Simulated assay, not measured.
Amino acid sequence: MTTSGSTSDSPSAPTSESLRPVSRTALSVALVRAYESSRPDPLFDDPYAAAFATAAELPLPAAGPRSGLAKALVAHGVLRTRFYDDRLLAAGADQVVLLAAGLDTRAHRLDWPAGTRVFELDLGPVLAFKEQVLDALGAVPRARRTVLPADLLEPHWPARLVDAGFDPARPSAWLAEGLLVYLAPEEAAALLTAVAALAAPGSRLLLEQGRDVTATPHDPSLAHVTDLWRGGLGPGTRDWLDGHGWATELTTLDRLARRHARPLPGPSTAAFIEAVRRPAD
């Protein structure tokens, strides 16, 4: 575990090729953020996203997506990023946990209130790759940052998080961005159960409302992402949370698109959940 510095899991320099397939999807998300940040009217600015693509020897996006599915996923990713940025800053918690943080740079690019501590959890190789890039840029976090290599499918990560300084007795904010769709239903339920055990009353959890991934159109150019989807809790995500000690609010992608004057490329049933941990009965 390291704080506000770099992390390294091996003496050799990490590369994107050492990442698992699921971890490599973080590069696709970084490309979306790089594309949005290059627009004249971006909904957010990620000054580090392009550097991840360059380090991975991926071409930077010079134009918008072409296929219908690609356009939908980019619009979803852009609006999702802005929504989570806004809600994390509004959560009022000085403990923020980014689950499967990937190449997330919110600790560096958001204007956090003084005293905020951001915990980033993910597999060691992806965090090591991120640290190499950020260190080369001289990036300085705007919050007290703790980078914690951890496998969220293993049972020991909650104890490691507490050992790293997380206080389960105080309210916290949690982000599971684009995570549950890569998990089987039982894995998603186990992960959310572990989060609930660490989340004090008043804590907030941000994640996507699941959907039926079997209905996703096939696009060979995106198979490296969509073939990994396992669905998580699917359309029952919100109901599961409501039945396990959370009070949820749903924000549809359509609503966000109207709010930010970003027309969607087509109809969408996508939505985002903000859940507040209820006091124990």
Score class of each variant (00 low, 15 high):
Thr54Arg: 09
Val147Ala: 04
Pro40Trp: 15
Gly92Trp: 01
Val97Thr: 00
Pro59Ser: 12
Gly234His: 01
Gly266Val: 11
Asp242Phe: 05
Arg66Ile: 15
Ala270Glu: 15
Asp9Ile: 09
His218Pro: 00
Arg109Trp: 02
Ala261Asn: 15
Tyr48Ile: 09
Val74Ser: 08
Leu148Trp: 12
Ser12Cys: 10
Val29Ile: 09
Glu57Ser: 11
Val97Asn: 02
Trp240Ser: 00
Ser16Val: 04
Ala55Leu: 08
Gly232Arg: 05
Leu137His: 14
Phe83Ala: 04
Ser23Asp: 06
Thr193Phe: 11
Trp157Arg: 03
Thr269Gly: 11
Ala34Arg: 07
Ala223Glu: 07
Asp151Met: 03
Glu36Phe: 07
His156Phe: 01
Met1Phe: 13
Gly210Ala: 02
Ala70Trp: 09
Ala72Gly: 10
Lys71Thr: 12
Leu19Ile: 02
Phe119Ile: 02
Val126Tyr: 07
Ala223Met: 02
Asp242Cys: 02
Ala56Ile: 04
Tyr182Pro: 03
Val147Met: 06
Ala159Val: 03
Leu121Asn: 06
Val213Leu: 00
Thr2Leu: 05
Ala30Val: 00
Pro47Tyr: 14
His244Trp: 08
Ala150Asn: 05
Asp254Phe: 09
Ser268Ile: 01
Gly243Asn: 00
Gly266Trp: 10
Pro267Ala: 14
Ala194Lys: 03
Ala215Ile: 04
Pro171Cys: 09
Arg33Asp: 00
Thr15Met: 13
Pro141Met: 07
Ser10Ala: 15
Ala196His: 09
Thr116Phe: 04
Ala196Cys: 00
Ser38Met: 13
Ala275Thr: 04
Leu241Thr: 02
Arg204Leu: 11
Ala26Leu: 03
Glu177Met: 08
Ala72Lys: 06
Val118Met: 12
Pro235Met: 04
Ser8Gln: 14
Glu249Lys: 01
Leu43Cys: 04
Trp240Phe: 05
Pro168Lys: 06
Arg204Cys: 05
Asp227Met: 08
Ala56Trp: 14
Val126Arg: 06
Phe83Gln: 07
Asp281Tyr: 09
Phe166Ser: 08
Ala90Glu: 06
Leu250Glu: 01
Val78Lys: 01
Thr252Gly: 07
Ala184Pro: 00
Asp239Leu: 05
Arg211Gln: 09
Pro61Lys: 10
Gly266Met: 13
Val22Glu: 05
Thr251Phe: 06
Tyr35Gly: 05
Gly68Thr: 12
